Simulated scan of single mutants.
Amino acid sequence: MKVKIKSWTMAAYWTWDVKEDDLCGICHNAYDACCPQCSMPGDDCSLVWGQCSHVFHLHCIEQWLASQTNGGTCPMDRKTWSTVSAAT
């Protein structure tokens, strides 16, 4: 018996290899690693939480907010950015 294929539909998906919660949403580096502006982990690169509960490296969110195109919003949900606290 021979089988003849009349049509074939492919589907694909992708995911990050690590949990999204472990990465900075801007630089995609781990929270315990350094951001692209730092040379060593812990070089005054603390984590910053927003009221929207998203977390970023301090240097990453500073650069993001300094950009003229984003209007001072969170890069993840586009709500107005407001810092809750910073941890070192």
Rank of each mutant, 00 (worst) to 15 (best):
K79A: 09
T88Q: 13
K79C: 09
S46E: 12
S7F: 03
L47Y: 01
M10I: 10
P36Q: 05
C24N: 04
Q51A: 07
A87M: 13
D21R: 05
S7Q: 10
H54N: 07
Q51M: 12
T88D: 12
D22K: 12
S67L: 11
V84M: 07
N29H: 11
L23Y: 05
K2A: 15
D77K: 00
K79V: 08
Y13M: 12
M10V: 11
L47M: 12
I61Q: 01
C35I: 08
R78M: 06
A11K: 12
A86T: 15
D44C: 09
W14H: 11
I26G: 02
V48G: 00
D44S: 13
E62N: 14
Q51L: 10
V55T: 14
T9E: 15
A86P: 00
W81I: 00
S85P: 00
M1W: 04
D21T: 10
D43Y: 10
H28R: 14
W49T: 12
R78I: 01
C45L: 02
K4V: 14
C45T: 01
I5F: 03
C74G: 00
D17G: 15
G71M: 03
F56G: 00
Y13L: 09
T88W: 10
T73G: 02
G42Y: 02
W8T: 08
P36Y: 04
L65W: 06
Y31N: 01
V84N: 03
G42T: 04
C35L: 11
C35H: 03
G25C: 02
H28K: 14
M76E: 02
D21V: 05
N70K: 07
Q63D: 15
W8C: 12
T9A: 13
H28V: 10
M40G: 03
P41S: 07
Q63Y: 07
S85G: 08
C45G: 08
A12D: 10
F56L: 03
Y13T: 14
F56M: 03
C35P: 04
E62I: 06
N70L: 05
Q63M: 12
T83N: 07
S82E: 14
L47I: 07
C24Q: 01
A12V: 09
P41Q: 05
K6I: 09
W14Q: 13
V84L: 11
M1K: 08
L65A: 07
D43G: 06
H28Y: 13
V18Q: 09
C60G: 05
Q68A: 15
P41D: 01
F56A: 02
N70Q: 14
D44T: 06
T80P: 02
K4W: 06
D32V: 04
S7M: 03
L65D: 02
S39R: 11
V3E: 10
L65V: 08
K6H: 07
K79N: 04
A86G: 15
T83K: 15
M10N: 11
C24A: 13
C60R: 00
A66E: 15
L23M: 13
M1N: 06
S53Q: 11
A11R: 09
N70V: 11
S85E: 15
Q51P: 00
S82C: 13
D32T: 04
H54I: 05
M40R: 13
P41V: 08
L65P: 01
G25L: 03
T83G: 05
P41G: 10
T88F: 12
H57Q: 06
Q63H: 13
E20N: 08
M76W: 00
W49Q: 10
M10R: 10
G42R: 07
L58Y: 11
A86F: 08
G71K: 03
N70S: 10
S7T: 09
M40D: 14
